[in-house]
Amino acid sequence: MEAEAAKLIGAGLASIPLAGAGVGLGLIFGNFLSGAFRNPSAAAANQPTMLLAFALTEFTGLLGFAIAMIILYTF
């Protein structure tokens, strides 16, 4: 059962990028909000960019998640 254990450990390790994605998402939304409070009139114009950055950052975490799932269910 060593391979099974290694699989689970590997899946756990592959989930670590979620932490980074969390930090990144916090930075994006935090900075957007602080900018939006400073200049509320410019906030609406930058919302698409913010959502784009959100999607790009979230991708990193999801990639880790997908890899974890592949490790768990494919090998």
């Binding site: 991708f59 999801l62 990639l63 998640f65 997908a66 799932m69």
Partner: peptide, 16 residues
Amino acid sequence: ISLAVRLFANMFAGHI
């Protein structure tokens, strides 16, 4: 790859 995996992973992860 990133375009494809982003959409796939979002849907995949959300449904899981």
